[in-house]
């Protein structure tokens, strides 16, 4: 099976004054379609840096990142932006919805940027909102939604353009237990029903419990990679 995501000898070094900080060292990784993977590790272990590399938000010091066989390591900024727009879904810890748009418009936003036809955008937004259980809140703005509902909208936004994978950075960190469980159930269902690939960076045991694969990072290196 062709991996959705693959890294080859990925390293990232930050130059902070006279000291070189090795955030990632020689990461070799393959994420297969439909996997529900979490990256865990203590603070400073390189989880976020790895996620940034996999999301095309940061460039490696060495090594390569392939998405469905395409090398994104040497793309220009605009190429990377367009690549993210069409191939990667993002879910942030703080939801990061656009406050002046309704839930439906937030979900439509990515499709709008892609230049899809209006009819298709409307239909897809309604479909994804229904999938995350928010069909009845489509016309509400983020300020009129609870934290859990906002994160569901964020998940719907990430899924709307049917990306090749979704990167979620601590998506449950700001949610209470019940809301977090409910959101994770929704994501797990989407993973199983639509074979959507999810990749999480998290400390949350509730997420780790549901993962099909757990990758542990320590000091910028993979210390374990466990498939369940």
């Amino acid at each position: 099976m062709t991996p959705v995501l693959q890294t080859l000898s990925l390293s990232k070094t930050y130059n902070e004054g006279p000291v070189d900080v090795h955030a990632l060292r020689n990461i070799n990784l393959e994420i297969l379609p439909g996997e529900f993977t979490v990256i865990v590790g203590p603070s400073g272990s390189g989880k976020t840096t790895l996620l940034n590399m996999l999301g095309g938000l940061d460039t490696p010091s060495e090594g390569k990142v392939f998405v469905a066989g395409t090398d994104i390591s040497n793309m220009s900024e605009n190429e990377l932006i367009d690549f993210r727009l069409h191939h990667i879904g993002f879910v942030f810890q703080a939801y990061n919805l656009i406050p002046v748009l309704t839930a439906e418009e937030n979900v439509s936003f990515i499709l709008d940027l892609q230049g899809r036809p209006a009819g298709e955008i409307k239909a897809r937004a309604a479909e994804v909102l229904a999938e995350v259980g928010l069909a009845d809140r489509a016309k509400n703005r983020p300020s009129e939604l609870s934290g859990g509902q906002q994160q569901r909208v964020a998940v719907a936004r990430a899924l709307a353009a049917r990306p090749q994978y979704v990167l979620a950075d601590e998506p449950t960190a700001n949610l209470d237990s019940a809301t977090a469980f409910s959101l994770l159930d929704t994501m797990k269902r989407l993973n199983e029903d639509e074979k959507m690939t999810f990749l999480f960076s998290t400390h949350d045991p509730r997420v780790i419990d549901r993962a099909s694969r757990v990758i542990t990072l320590v000091d910028g290196e993979i210390s374990s990679d466990e498939r369940r």
Binding site: G55, L57, E77, N78, I81, D82, R84, L85, H86, F90, F92, N96, I98, P99, F109, I110, L113, Q114, R157
Partner: peptide, 16 residues
């Protein structure tokens, strides 16, 4: 600032 960063992250070009 953060909102701008997020918009570019999810796929909005700086020009737009």
């Amino acid at each position: 600032r953060k909102e701008f960063g997020v918009l570019v992250s999810v796929g909005m070009r700086r020009g737009r």
